[in-house]
């Protein structure tokens, strides 16, 4: 059996998670101009509630649907009641405000669910197939498939549909978009809801595939942001690919002993190098562009 094949397959499995998270972050950023630090926390909340529902004996389809609605609901709440107050602030301040939201959600989760080892077992965890010597569960395939689907369809949605166009125009300049008669409220609500639903579902998959722990899932948003940086917060396909590449590099580093302990740095190093490379040759920066 080829050891490289095994590690690449494993890297793709982990990379799919980065990709899925990154794609959702870029989607919201393109539609509202906000980088959402609370994305991981929304997912964590969805996953914890799904676990709770399971403990109470809820049927599994409900367990799958719950995080989607929970994510959408809380994301909408932020988008509806807090984000408008920040619309005049610069992008960094908007992003930092979402960190506040993340902390609120994390605090609630820690109050409700006392820290203890938990496991989210989905039926799809028990179905698996063999891929390059690696057993891949259906949950992992769903994560990969969802990331791919979102990457393909959202790119088209934003680029080709009228709603997508409106989303992009609002993200570019909210005031001008409003002057042009874009129904800001409606479009933004849609964007927040959509991205929240995605965050919740991502959280469910992460809760099963990574660890069902509120703090871990909340702060996974940081390496996810690394993939979006590679895609310059704009390109969904590039973010998708970046997630996979980061996952594979991280996995392959395991094979080289001296570098193996440092492999968790991969997302950050890849992001910095790409960003520097993308911005090469620029001499001046201008206030209106990043």
């Amino acid at each position: 059996m080829n050891i490289y094949g095994l590690f690449i397959a494993s890297g793709l499995a982990v990379g799919a998670l980065y990709a899925l998270g990154g794609v959702g972050l870029v989607l919201l950023n393109r539609a509202t101009g906000i980088l959402n630090f609370a994305y991981g926390a929304l997912g964590a909340l969805g996953a914890m509630l799904a676990w709770q529902a399971m403990q109470w004996g809820a049927p599994e389809p409900l367990v799958w649907l719950l995080p989607i609605f929970v994510g959408a609901f809380f994301s909408l709440a932020f988008g509806r009641y807090i984000a408008p107050h920040l619309s005049q602030r610069e992008p960094v301040v908007k992003a930092v405000a979402t960190l506040g939201f993340a902390i609120v959600i994390l605090g609630f989760m820690n109050l409700i669910w006392i820290d203890t080892p938990r496991k989210l077992s989905l039926t799809t965890d028990t179905i698996s197939l063999n891929f390059a010597g690696l057993r891949v569960t259906l949950t992992r395939l769903i994560a990969f498939g969802l990331a791919l689907t979102v990457a393909l369809s959202m790119g088209v949605f934003l680029a080709r549909t009228r709603t997508g166009l409106m989303m992009r125009s609002i993200a570019a300049d909210r005031d001008v978009a409003a002057l042009l008669g874009t129904p800001i409220r409606r479009v933004e609500t849609l964007a927040w809801g959509l991205s929240g639903a995605l965050a919740g579902f991502t959280g469910l998959l992460f809760g099963s595939l990574v660890r069902l722990d509120p703090a871990t899932l909340t702060f996974l948003v940081i390496p996810m942001i690394a993939t979006t940086v590679v895609g310059r917060l704009q390109s969904i396909p590039i973010t998708f690919v970046a997630g996979l590449v980061i996952g594979v590099i991280e996995s392959l580093m395991t094979l080289y002993k001296p570098l193996a302990p440092f492999r968790a740095m991969t997302p950050f190093v890849v992001a910095i190098i790409t960003l520097m490379w993308l911005q090469r040759g620029r001499l001046l920066t201008f206030a209106n562009e990043d």
């Binding site: 494993s10 890297g11 982990v14 702060f219 996995s251 395991t254 968790a264």
Partner: peptide, 19 residues
């Protein structure tokens, strides 16, 4: 096999275990 507690990647740890 030392692991970063925040890491999302348990797969490579398992592969390392096998190796």
């Amino acid at each position: 096999i030392p692991l970063d507690p925040a890491s999302a990647d348990m797969n490579s740890a398992v592969l390392e275990t096998i190796a």
